[in-house]
Amino acid sequence: MKATVIYQSGDHQWIIFGRDPDKKDKIVDTNQHMVMSGGKAILLDPGGIELFAPMLAAVAHHVPISNITTLFASHQDPDIISSLGLWDQVLEDASLYAPWLWEGFIRHFGCDKITYAAIPDEGMDIRIGGRTLTFVPAHYLHASGNFSVYDPVAKILMSGDVGAALLPDDAPMVVEDFDDHIQYMKAFHQRWMPSNKAKQVWVDRVRQLDVEMMSPQHGAIFKGDDVNRFLDWFEALDVGIAVS
């Protein structure tokens, strides 16, 4: 599993784990994010069962496993959080922040030792070490209870499935040519994002944030001007129309 440090300032770090070369063919490639600060770490969308072992090994390159105090699931999908039952047997005193709406469902993955911390619809802030992360509502994008994660100091937005692209295996971690990148994300957004209204609410909300990097759960990172390019493109895209 490849690890890419996308932000570092002192002990405040953002790392993306992904592009696993041993991943089975029919499993969609995912980006797992880890944010560290003050000897604590949070895993954002820690991924599926299949990825658990390589993830654990990859994380051990950066922090002792016991430093992982928190997990976050943007929504209930298996590629997001089906590894929960395994983390549950590994982590002591950890919490999972996830939409309140999905608690009864996500618990089916196994959640005995880990505390389920339900995120209210309006979102919330949490502290990881010396830093604050904000769970930004992204409901219906694509799940009915869904959040993005914003770090106001690193100016990174982890956007979950928004901005996702289904890329070839060797694709770079950062979008290099936005126009060329559209082909990898257009059909995904038209099919998976069900509501133009929800999309507009999220775009308006994100426009108010200072975002230097937008990092989705699949595909590549949008940096600098490409963040706004994405927001403009997404705003103009008619979604929820891929099948009639």
């Binding site: 072992a53 390589p54 654990l56 090994a57 990859a58 051990a60 390159h61 496993i65």
Partner: peptide
């Protein structure tokens, strides 16, 4: 799974593999 991770961490020389 954890043993698989243990082996992977060892092979790749992960700094915190003891954890």
């Amino acid at each position: 799974m954890a043993e698989k991770a243990q082996a992977l961490a060892k092979d790749s020389g992960a700094r915190h593999r003891a954890s």
